[in-house]
Each structure stands twice: as C-alpha cells, then as structure tokens.
Nucleic acid binder design. Structure first.
Lengths: 127, 127
DNA sequence: ATACTATCTGGAGTGAACTTTAAGTCAAGT
DNA sequence: ACTTGACTTAAAGTTCACTCCAGATAGTAT
C-alpha cells in the first residue's frame, strides 16, 4: 500500500508517517525499486501499533527504544518485557489520574446543573 | 502561604506556579504589601484544581477559558457547564484509548513472559 | 517525449507547556 | 546599615511531537 493509502486508512498524515520512520518509531518500511514506500502487512502492523501507543500518550522516545530492542534480536526479550511492564504501570497511573479528575468534573457538573435549573449556585467557591 | 511552601506541598515548581498565574490558568494570587505572593485558601484551591486538571491532560488553554468564565459572573454558568461536559467526554475518550492500549500491552506482556520462562517466542510478529 | 501528479529527502518552522536567565526588589538576621 | 537569600518581572530558551517547505525524483497518462 502507498503512503497515501496508509495515511487515509489510519488517519495519520504522510509527514507523520515519514517522521515515525525517520526517528525509528517504526522499523524501515519496504520500498519499491524506485525508493517509494510500499507498506507490507508487517509495516502496517507497526504503524497500527505506533498509532495505538501514541494515542494513549506513550512517548515517541519509548517506542523508539522498543523498536530498537526488537531489531537487536531475542536476547533483548527481558528488556522488552520490562519496558512494556513499565509502560503498563504508567498507563494505569495515568488512568487513575483521569478518574480522579472525572470525579471532580462530575461533582462540578452536578452543581452547575442544579444552578442552571434553579438559578441558584449551591456552593461558594469556584475552584 | 509562600510560593515556596505551595511549590513543595503540591510538587509544582515556583516557575510553573508563576506561569499558571501569568497566563490566567488560575486567578491572580493574593499579594503582600510588598508584592509577594501570599496564597490564601481560595488561591490554593485554584492551584489544586489546576494541578488536578493538568495531570489528566486537560490543556492549559481550556483552564484559562474556564477561569475567564468564572470571572465574568453567574451569566456564564451555562457556558461553564458545557465546557466541563466537553472535558468530561474528552477524558472518557482518552480513558478508553488507554484501555485499548493496556489490552495490547497485556497481550504482549503475557507472550513475553512465556518467552522468558520457556525460551520460546510463541508468536512471529513483533508489532 | 511531455506533462502532470505523487512521493522523496533534509531541514526549517510551529505550538504547547513549561524552564531558564537576567536584572532587579523585598525581608530577615547581625 | 549591610548582607544574604527568597522573591519579583519580562523575555528568551527548551523539549516534544509533529508539520511545512523546497527542490529533486518517480510513476502515469497522452
């Protein structure tokens, strides 16, 4: 598949796809004889993984490290496992921060809803 | 309380506290006669709210908008309610992205754990 | 062969959120 | 009064993750 097709399919700009490859966030993509990217199944899986990880906020730098480890062969499996576990912990932490903030938002929302309905603000402090 | 005490209590750098105030992410902080910040209870509540929102990834720009609305009085309550609801939806979306990524991480972690224990990689593709 | 569009590279530019720096002011101890 | 250390501002610098651009090359249609 061409970069254009991948870009449309995964809603990632062509520039970003080239950037991901350039910095090593995905391994080098298959090319045609003329040097044009021709994404094969495995290339596409990497793109999809990259998109998934980034959407959760995992840093580019971390993915670069992971890709580097995979290129270095099976001896890096324990290191990869550790990296993935670390990221898992960070995501769980991030999730709990979101939950905390959601609780706060829900509290405020309920107060504001009462205020909108009755015209009376039922608490004093904004923050 | 001084900026130093607030900085230590909430683990936010003094620079960041001044930055938050300067851009309007929190309302102007109470000052001493000499112009030095003296965080009162309400100032502190704003700091705490700012920290909570930022830790969940809510943009500075959004908080600035919210603070601005609160300064404009009760007529902005419906707008504030809408803003909070929008942020809630964004956080729920972000949470589901994290969940998706966690599932993926868990799958990989379990495979790598088997690989580490048995020395055999039980699947072909890294991504 | 010519024209036209897509893709290529390397490098510069952007926006968000701080962070650092420089130069000056305030407050507490001696 | 003097020094020391914390605090002040405005402005420049940094980092991250893209994003845009210029100029060159590749592939396609006529």
């Amino acid at each position: 598949m061409t970069i254009k097709e991948i870009s449309e399919k995964y809603d990632i700009s062509q520039d970003t796809l080239r950037y991901y490859e350039r910095v090593g966030m995905i391994p080098p993509v298959t090319r045609t004889a003329g040097g044009i990217r021709d994404y094969k199944e495995e290339d596409i899986r990497w793109v999809e993984l990259a998109k998934c990880m980034r959407s959760a906020g995992i840093p580019v730098e971390t993915m670069i490290e992971y890709v580097k480890l995979t290129q270095e062969g099976d001896t890096t499996i324990p290191a990869r496992l550790q990296l993935l576990k670390d990221q898992k912990d960070l995501l769980l932490e991030q999730k709990s921060k979101i939950d905390e903030t959601l609780e706060r938002l829900n509290y405020k929302i309920s107060r504001y809803e009462i205020a909108v309905e009755t015209g009376i603000l039922t608490w004093e402090d904004e923050a």
